[in-house]
């Protein structure tokens, strides 16, 4: 790999741009292509491979034209947005970072979102509805609500339900979840919309400690990411 190729990959990573690295297996020059680069000088097959690699986050091997070319996606990191800088959030953030997520914690309450407890995490000491004006909610983002306070969780849910984030979970007992869904249904949210909210949050593995609950939530999040229709 040439120095300028590595620089192009680093530049894309730093600016949060999705690109694909195209490597001819005969050792020919590599290309770094973003969606904006798929103009007329890029073959239809290559453009399709780049789109597919970025959309599925999987490498594509192209055999067109004799020389095989490997198309490797370099997507920006997945993102996790946690609402509520509570005890479980500490374990959830750490574990999510291990899994490669860029993590943001939102909590409007003074004294909760302390930097010392959340190393490497973006902390926003504002209300969720305010935070979501600047934080993009896209298909590579997961949102987990941990406050079980309707004053904080409900406004966050209203923003999140109108987005295409791949995972939504809200902490709370079965009863808390039932009341939450009743409130939102009364506001006009439909059953398919409400079905997107995983609650009680996480896979049922009998989790007890904050770290175990974090593990169960991240396991469920991974399942939604990798097997969206399961």
């Amino acid at each position: 790999m040439r120095r300028e190729t590595l620089r192009a990959l680093q530049g894309a990573q730093e600016s949060g741009r999705a690109v694909a690295l195209v490597t001819p297996l005969d050792g020919g020059p590599q290309q770094v292509l973003g969606l904006a680069d798929l103009g007329q000088d890029v073959s239809t097959e290559l453009a399709q491979a780049v789109r597919s690699a970025l959309a599925t986050d999987r490498a594509v091997l192209l055999a067109e034209g004799g020389v095989e070319r490997l198309v490797c996606p370099r997507n920006p990191p997945l993102r996790l947005i946690v609402v509520g800088a509570v005890h479980i959030a500490e374990a959830l953030c750490g574990l999510a970072q291990t899994l490669g997520y860029a993590v943001t914690v939102i909590d409007p309450r003074a004294g909760f979102a302390r930097a010392g407890l959340f190393p490497g995490v973006t902390l926003l000491n504002v209300w969720p509805q305010e935070a979501f004006e600047t934080v993009a909610l896209d298909a590579r983002t997961a949102v987990v609500l941990l406050t079980h306070d309707p004053k904080i969780d409900d406004p966050a849910l209203r923003c999140v339900l109108s987005s295409d984030v791949f995972y939504i979970a809200a902490l709370g007992s079965t009863r808390t979840q039932a009341r939450r869904l009743e409130r939102l249904a009364a506001e006009g949210y439909t059953s398919p919309q409400l079905a997107r909210i995983h609650g009680p949050a996480g896979l049922a593995i009998g989790a007890r400690t904050p770290a175990e609950i974090a593990l169960s939530v991240l396991a469920q999040m991974t399942q939604r990411l990798r097997e969206p229709r399961s």
Partner: peptide, 13 residues
Amino acid sequence: VVETWGSAPRPAG
């Protein structure tokens, strides 16, 4: 990794 067949431990890429 360029290509895998069967049960390979790490995917292409």
